[in-house]
Amino acid sequence: MNTAPMTSGLGIGALEAVYDTLAQAIDQAGPGKIELLLVKLALLQAQALGDEQAFQAQVEAALRDL
C-alpha cells in the first residue's frame, strides 16, 4: 500500500470554504442524521474520486490522531 502523504490541489482558502460547507451541512442535518450525512458524503466522494485504494488511504489518514 502507498503510504505517501496525500496531496491536495486545494489552497487554504478553498479548504476553509469546504470546511464551512461541511459544518453548515452537519448543522442542517441535525443530531440524529449526522452519521448518515457523513456516510452518504463519503460514498459520493469515493465515487467522484474513482479510486478505491486512494479512498482507503484517505480513510486511514482521517483516522490518525483522532
Rank of each mutant, 00 (worst) to 15 (best):
M1S: 11
M1P: 08
N2L: 02
T3Y: 15
T3D: 15
T3F: 15
T3H: 15
A4E: 10
A4T: 08
A4N: 08
P5M: 09
P5N: 07
P5A: 10
P5H: 10
M6I: 09
T7C: 07
T7R: 09
S8C: 03
S8I: 01
S8M: 05
G9C: 04
G9V: 02
G9M: 07
L10E: 11
L10G: 02
I12T: 14
I12P: 01
I12A: 15
G13M: 11
G13L: 14
A14K: 14
A14G: 01
A17N: 07
A17I: 04
V18L: 14
V18E: 13
V18C: 08
V18T: 09
Y19S: 13
Y19D: 12
Y19C: 12
D20A: 09
D20H: 03
D20N: 08
T21A: 14
T21S: 11
T21G: 07
T21I: 10
A23R: 11
Q24A: 14
Q24D: 13
Q24S: 12
D27C: 04
D27V: 14
Q28W: 04
Q28I: 07
A29W: 05
A29G: 12
G30H: 12
P31W: 06
I34H: 05
I34K: 14
E35I: 08
E35D: 13
L36H: 09
L37Y: 02
V39E: 03
V39H: 06
V39G: 01
K40V: 00
K40S: 12
L41Q: 06
A42R: 02
L44T: 02
L44C: 15
Q45I: 08
Q45R: 10
Q45E: 13
A46N: 14
A46Q: 06
Q47T: 12
Q47S: 13
Q47H: 13
A48I: 02
A48N: 09
L49N: 02
G50M: 04
D51L: 05
D51M: 00
D51K: 02
E52M: 11
Q53R: 06
Q53M: 05
Q53I: 03
F55K: 00
F55Y: 09
Q56R: 14
Q56Y: 03
A57E: 07
A57W: 00
Q58E: 09
Q58T: 05
Q58C: 09
Q58D: 06
Q58I: 01
Q58H: 03
E60S: 10
A61T: 10
A61N: 06
A61E: 12
A62L: 09
A62F: 07
A62H: 01
L63H: 05
L63Y: 07
L63P: 01
R64C: 03
R64V: 11
R64D: 08
